[in-house]
């Protein structure tokens, strides 16, 4: 009897130990934080990670001063201390960064990229005070915020090749905004209909698969020019052909002439492509329509025959 009781006790103890171990394992997985910790030499985040840290600006608007710890821990600059950008006396720094001053800030280290950007259509517009344009953080951060800038090769990065078209589409898909600049083409949709867009869309995230052209491969990266600019990589058939040749070895102007120019085929834009499409639509409608009628007829008759049996 005693022996049997002991065995029961052992069973109970082992069950308790086992479940405790399982719970501990699950808990350690659930609550573990495997993120790297951003460099924060002056413990700025001890205050600035608070949810409700805010201040009233000179014109009476409440501004949140909160910095997401999660973002800076994941950010490309996680090992650059806050003071590198915010100066050694951040509380004395002039507030209210503008698009221009924020881009300049990036340019203090990323000199070449900044210089190239100032010559691009985005940068030129920025210097004229246009607040619509894309600057560094608009493309390099998922939140258009300097603290969450992530590296180009991260899958979630707006600048990762798989995501570039969507990133451009954030502004270029906004028809109202684009109308102000005379850009009426539905560039994202036409790109996704094209071979390049389909290849990128189907390719998954493996960088070796992402070998088709996206927006930046033809239009440039930091140095994007307006298509009306004669120095643009896509201006005129000769420039366009040279751009095609970067991937399609030996492509000439005739090859470039086959490009629909981000527009649908129409009587004005490669009319033959438009009429061939119309012809096939008609062919499909008539052949499949006739086939469908015969098929439906057969289904009805065969079912009827069976019903009567």
């Amino acid at each position: 009897m005693v022996k049997k009781g002991m065995r029961t006790n052992l069973k109970v103890v082992s069950i308790i130990l086992l479940s405790a171990f399982t719970l501990a394992t699950i808990a350690s997985i659930v609550f573990s934080n495997s993120d790297t910790i951003a460099l924060d030499e002056n413990n700025c985040l001890s205050c600035h990670s608070n949810l409700n840290i805010e201040k009233k600006s000179t014109n009476g608007v409440l501004i949140s001063l909160r910095i997401s710890e999660k973002d800076v821990n994941r950010g490309a600059h996680r090992y650059i201390d806050c003071t590198t950008c915010h100066t050694t006396k951040p509380h004395e720094a002039k507030p209210a960064l503008t698009k221009q001053s924020s881009a300049e800030k990036c340019g203090t280290c990323h000199k070449y990229e900044y210089k190239v950007h100032t010559q691009s259509i985005h940068g030129q517009q920025l210097q004229q005070g246009n607040q619509d344009v894309a600057t560094c953080v608009d493309c390099h951060s998922p939140k258009a915020d300097a603290h969450s800038v992530i590296r180009v090769l991260e899958y979630g990065a707006p600048t990762y090749k798989k995501n570039i078209a969507e990133t451009c589409n954030k502004c270029h898909g906004n028809t109202e905004l684009m109308q102000d600049y005379g850009l009426v083409e539905r560039v994202y949709e036409s790109y996704m209909r094209s071979f390049h867009g389909k290849a990128i869309g189907l390719s998954g995230y493996d960088i070796t698969q992402l070998d088709a052209a996206t927006c930046t491969n033809c239009h440039g990266v930091h140095d994007i020019k307006a298509t009306a600019d004669p120095t643009a990589t896509v201006a005129g058939m000769d420039n366009l052909a040279k751009t095609c040749e970067q991937c399609h070895a030996g492509a000439g102007a005739e090859f470039a002439r086959g490009f629909l120019g981000h527009k649908e085929a129409s009587p004005k834009n490669i009319p033959i492509a438009y009429y061939v499409e119309r012809f096939f639509n008609l062919l499909l409608l008539s052949v499949l329509g006739a086939g469908g009628i015969v098929l439906m007829g057969a289904v009805v008759r065969y079912s009827g025959n069976r019903w009567r049996k």
């Binding site: 086959g258 492509a273 052949v287």
Partner: peptide
């Protein structure tokens, strides 16, 4: 072979081929 094709044929054959291939395949 779009580069090869446009050496001997006009450029519009590529968008035409694209639309024809896609539609005829569905048919």
């Amino acid at each position: 072979f779009p580069v090869f094709a446009t050496k001997y044929l006009p450029g519009w054959v590529v968008p035409v081929a694209y639309t024809a291939h896609s539609h005829e395949a569905m048919l």
